[in-house]
C-alpha cells in the first residue's frame, strides 16, 4: 500500500505545523512542528492522550484555527493563508466529522434541512435535487429518509453520528477529518459507525485523518498510525508494526493502556490453577 501510494502525489501534506495558544511571550505550544502526509484514499490515524494536540491539529487543517507557522498543502496548494471563497472551496474538498453527535447538529433545524443547507451554501443543484440528494445520503448512511423532517433530539447518539457523516459526505469531499467520531458512543454502536466509515470510504474513495485516543479503534480502521505526544509526532508506522514492536516509550504506554481481555483471562486462569 505505502509503496503504491508514494508514487501518487499526496492529497494533504502538512509540514512543520505550529499552533500556539495564550500569551505571545509564554505560549502554550499545542502543536509543535508536526508533519503529516495523506495520500488519496488512505486512512491515517492520529492517536494520543487528551491534551496532546491531536484535535488542534485537525482543526488547524480544517482552518478552524489560525496556524502560527508551517505549511498545509492540499493537492499541492498551500491553504494556510487562503480566505473567503477559496477557503469555502477548500472546505468543499475537506470535511469533518465531530466528536459530539449531540452538540454538532443544530437543535432547531430538521436533520434533512441540515444536509440540504450544506449543498445550498455551496450552490449545488436546485431545491428538489438537493432534497433528493439528501434522501440518498440518508439511505447511504443507513437511515430511513422518512425521518428527514425530524429534529436532532429525536435521534439516538449513533443515529446522529450517521447524520453527521451524511452531512460530511454531502459535498463529496476527498478528505474527511474524523475527530474522535466514536468516542462519545456506546461500544456496540462504535463498531457500527466504524463499519459505516469503512464502507463509505470504499464507495467514495475517501481519505481519512482519523483522530482518536483509542488505539484499538484506530488500528481497526487505519492503514497508518501517527502517535502524538505533547504536540509532537513521536512514532509512525503500520498498525501491525506499531502494535508488535513499539519504539517510543509513550507508544508502549498507550499499548499497555489498551485492556487486553484475552491476556487478562489467560493470566487469571493461570493463577487459579
Amino acid at each position: 500500500m505505502s509503496e503504491a501510494s508514494t508514487q501518487r502525489s499526496p492529497l494533504l501534506e502538512v509540514n512543520d505545523l505550529h499552533v500556539q495558544f495564550g500569551p505571545r511571550r509564554k505560549p502554550v505550544r499545542a502543536v509543535d512542528g508536526i508533519d503529516i502526509v495523506i495520500y488519496p484514499g488512505e486512512s491515517v490515524g492520529l492517536v494520543g492522550e487528551s491534551g496532546c494536540g491531536k484535535t488542534t491539529t485537525g482543526r488547524a487543517i480544517m482552518r478552524l484555527l489560525d496556524v502560527n507557522a508551517g505549511r498545509i498543502q492540499f493537492q499541492g496548494k498551500d491553504i494556510a493563508p487562503i480566505t473567503g471563497s477559496a477557503l469555502k472551496d477548500y472546505r468543499k474538498q475537506v470535511q469533518m466529522v465531530f466528536q459530539d453527535p449531540y452538540g454538532s447538529l443544530n437543535a432547531r433545524m430538521p436533520v434533512g434541512r441540515a444536509l440540504e443547507e450544506v449543498m445550498q451554501v455551496h450552490r449545488m443543484g436546485t431545491r428538489t435535487e438537493r432534497r433528493q440528494r439528501a434522501a440518498q445520503l440518508f439511505e447511504s448512511v443507513g437511515l430511513d429518509p422518512a425521518y428527514m423532517d425530524r429534529y436532532p433530539h429525536e435521534f439516538s447518539g449513533g443515529q446522529r453520528q450517521r447524520i453527521g457523516i451524511a452531512r460530511a459526505l454531502a459535498l463529496q469531499p476527498q478528505l474527511i477529518i474524523a475527530d474522535e467520531p466514536v468516542s462519545a458512543l456506546d461500544v456496540s454502536v462504535q463498531v457500527q459507525i466504524l463499519n459505516l466509515l469503512k464502507e463509505v470510504q470504499q464507495q467514495e474513495q475517501l481519505a481519512y485523518l482519523f483522530i482518536a485516543h483509542d488505539l484499538a479503534v484506530v488500528g481497526y480502521i487505519c492503514e497508518r498510525i501517527l502517535v502524538m505526544y505533547q504536540g509532537k509526532i513521536v512514532e509512525a508506522g503500520q498498525p501491525s508494526d506499531l502494535f508488535s514492536n513499539p519504539q517510543h516509550p509513550y507508544t508502549q504506554k498507550l499499548l499497555d493502556a489498551v485492556p487486553d481481555v484475552d491476556q487478562a483471562l489467560l493470566r487469571r486462569s493461570g493463577a487459579s490453577e
Binding site: M62, F98, S104, N106, V121
Partner: peptide, 8 residues
C-alpha cells in the same frame, strides 16, 4: 463550529 467547517 460544524457550520463553520461546512463553509457556512
Amino acid at each position: 463550529t460544524a457550520a463553520h467547517a461546512l463553509g457556512v
